[in-house]
């Protein structure tokens, strides 16, 4: 049983990672959701073997399933749910602003890279002029 659950978790992680690497936020959100599910499944596996509902007074405590991972998974599910909603709102805001939900590159990075290219071009020009001047001197 736990091998099956672990296998399902692995498949979920695989699909989630692929979706996470896409450019569109809508796909990323689904990917994050799948990754969250995979984490929760692993939490369930960590509880060990199956058992009866862990309610005091309903049976033999030795036959209970471990309640802690269930509580942990529940907390994690609530948190993932809230953050997913926030991401959806962010995607909606992006769609409002740009009619798209593509995650763009860092503009400042490009600005700095261009800046350095400009610097290099100027340096190249100066060197070329100096070489030309030297050539003319020799003549």
């Amino acid at each position: 049983m736990s091998v099956l659950v672990a296998f399902v978790a692995a498949v979920l992680v695989g699909c989630g990672t692929w979706l996470l690497l896409q450019r569109r936020l809508s796909r990323i959100i689904i990917g994050v959701g799948l990754l969250g599910h995979a984490g929760n499944m692993l939490l369930m596996v960590s509880g060990g073997r199956r058992g009866t509902a862990p309610l005091i007074g309903t049976g033999d405590p030795a036959g209970f399933s471990d309640p802690l991972p269930q509580a942990l998974a529940l907390t994690a599910i609530v948190i993932t749910f809230g953050i997913t909603l926030f991401l959806l709102a962010l995607g909606f805001r992006s769609w409002q602003l740009t009619n798209d939900d593509v995650v763009e590159d860092d503009v400042e990075d490009r600005f700095i890279a261009r800046q350095q290219r400009v610097d290099r071009d100027i340096a190249d020009e100066i060197l070329a002029e100096a070489a030309q001047a030297a050539e003319e001197d020799r003549r």
Binding site: L20, I28, V32, L42, P69
Partner: peptide, 18 residues
């Protein structure tokens, strides 16, 4: 998204540690 990836990884580590 990067924080969520970290959080998910945290959950996985928690499951393994437990």
């Amino acid at each position: 998204v990067i924080s969520l990836v970290a959080s998910t990884f945290f959950i996985v580590v928690l499951a393994l540690v437990y």
